[in-house]
Design a protein around this nucleic acid. Structure first.
Lengths: 329, 329
DNA sequence: CGCACCCCTGAGACCGCTCTCGGCGCAACC
DNA sequence: GGTTGCGCCGAGAGCGGTCTCAGGGGTGCG
């Protein structure tokens, strides 16, 4: 008995063992047509016995479905890929995809060159697209060939469903908290103007402060810590009497904290600082950062599952954020 | 002229346009056999003209190569996947893979169940494996079918090449710096004992302190910030006269910093603190953290490229780390 | 001039799966 | 009893590549 190379079982093998045709075996494994209970049982038993698992490449080839999910991050430069936020999205997506025998790849989507989307649409390897940080302009350029298998983390459109945190609500809650604790000259460090995710928090800020009869003090940041440091400097210079700062990301808030510390300004005594995201280090800063949670993993998991399963999804889902009270505000 | 669905060009189309057979076209595209200069030119021209790109699934099916790279993270529980370090590895790998039409997936490798490796080996979908945080035990269980397409970030073995930071050297440098700045009662917060990456830094610590005639003060951590907080508490309790702490990761160092701040202990006045990794927030803590760099992206990129290209790689590559002096030590 | 050899090429099998299509058996109904 | 209809099944044609193999044309040598 020559022990030949232990070739992996194929559908053909399963069919032979089950005593049915390959077609029938395929039907029960892939579950599309009808099959009798007996046939089903025999096939399943054979598959289990042989440790059968379908070859993703062969299946992709036959169905025309792609073999990987691409996470496309929009931005002006490729550096947008180097962001902890993107990391979290990619990890969650990769975890979801692993169970479905699908890979993930990461791409930069040049802000003003939606042509890349056309290439993705034609690429037989791509099963679907998960867009991050996208803009209306880019969303509008999503080719028909990609519709139905594209979702966005952030804003959406009629053709691409959106999964996002309720950042407007989060901003409202945080600013409400600042107000409630007696702050009156509240500044906000926003994200970059081109990022749509900046809009709702800014609107919320404008509304809440206007309702309280307070002036708007807006400074743009870039979601990085160094950006936060610079923004804090600007605030201090432009409005020296500021008594609270809401930074639209923890990274920026942490940067602001660093600037204030360097200037010897007491937090929260002189100025209260609040962030958004609840990154792990937010609990460890001095003082510990008051912030609001951002369920990125949950969002990315749902988004990835939606494009993989081609399930119907509500056009826009907003995930709730929770206020996390610590020392800084 | 009916404009039919713009089907993506196949090799067949390229061959037809170039006026050669599919075989010849394949030869020049995949570049394995011999082809005349004219044939080559015609095929290349046709491919360019048609915007041809090979279907990864079809190619994978024909060659038997897998269609995705799996990043396998060893650990006791699936929570090992939720680690910023893993995120960085996955991102770098995904970026490398994207250019090669390969996807990435993320898996947890149960520490005491190397059987999962056998499944990976049989999975026709996997092109190669990138192991993270692995142990000798697991390394020894890598099936032959996976050899030659598996690399490890961390320790390696005869059959799986290793890519890692020179963490022994980094530890030596950091402790040397502590010593040079007059510290004499230096404690170290290590990683978990089961992680091989803990070994070299600990050995370095032991050697350097012994050479200086100092006692070893070792406390195990878990590479998380909360673990660092707890470890710092232990150190304070067990050796109250400690004047410096080297934590083997920035997260733990930041945790230690938080504990010290809470206790009102001055850093670096009373106790100096140094970390390892140079995470972004290390520059923003109060005081800013002295640490050593960890070129994770560079390492992961090289590792991913190695398994994808099946290129020969030196059995073990140690990437240099640099001391980053800030305020805490 | 004949032969051997080599370079190049095309035909075609194959990778493992999906899915259409036609056939078969059986129950229901007229 | 004959027809219709339906449920289940197998044959087989792809999907888009790779790669073996046999053959054709040219060159070098005897």
């Amino acid at each position: 008995m020559t022990s030949r190379a232990p070739r992996r079982a194929t559908l053909e093998d399963v069919a032979r063992v089950a005593g049915v045709s390959r077609s029938t075996a395929s039907r029960v494994i892939a579950g599309y047509g009808a099959a009798s209970a007996t046939a089903r049982d025999r096939v399943v038993a054979a598959a289990v016995q042989l440790g059968y698992a379908p070859d993703p490449a062969a299946r992709a080839l036959a169905t025309g479905a792609g073999v990987r999910l691409v996470v496309a991050v929009a931005g002006a430069t490729p550096t947008v890929l180097h962001d902890p936020y993107v990391d979290r999205v990619v990890r969650a997506a990769a975890e979801v995809c692993a169970r479905r025998e699908v890979g993930v790849s990461l791409e930069w989507l040049p802000l003003h060159a939606p042509a890349r989307l056309g290439q993705l649409a034609e690429d037989r390897g791509v099963r679907g697209v998960l867009m991050v940080n996208t803009t209306e302009r880019i969303l509008a350029a999503v080719p028909t060939a990609l519709q139905g298998r594209t979702v966005s983390i952030g804003i959406g459109s009629r053709t691409v469903p959106s999964f996002d945190v309720d950042n407007g609500g989060a901003a409202r809650t945080i600013i409400g908290h600042l107000l409630a604790s007696g702050r009156r000259r509240i500044a906000m460090v926003t994200g970059p103007a081109w990022m749509p995710c900046t809009r709702r928090p800014v609107t919320a800020y404008r509304e809440v402060t206007r309702a309280a009869g307070l002036p708007a003090r807006l400074v743009p940041g870039d979601f990085t810590a160094t950006g936060g440091q610079a923004a804090m400097l600007t605030i201090l210079e432009r409005w020296p009497d500021t008594d609270a700062v809401f930074a639209n990301s923890d990274a920026m808030a942490l940067g602001a904290l660093a600037t204030l510390r360097r200037r010897g300004i007491d937090v929260p005594g002189d100025i209260a600082v609040a962030g958004f995201d609840d990154v792990p280090f937010a609990a460890l800063s001095a003082p510990a950062l008051t912030t609001a949670s951002h369920p990125v993993e949950q969002i990315a998991t749902a988004a990835a599952a939606a494009v993989l399963d081609r399930a119907w999804v509500p056009p826009a889902t907003a995930y709730p954020s929770e206020l996390i009270l610590r020392e800084s505000a």
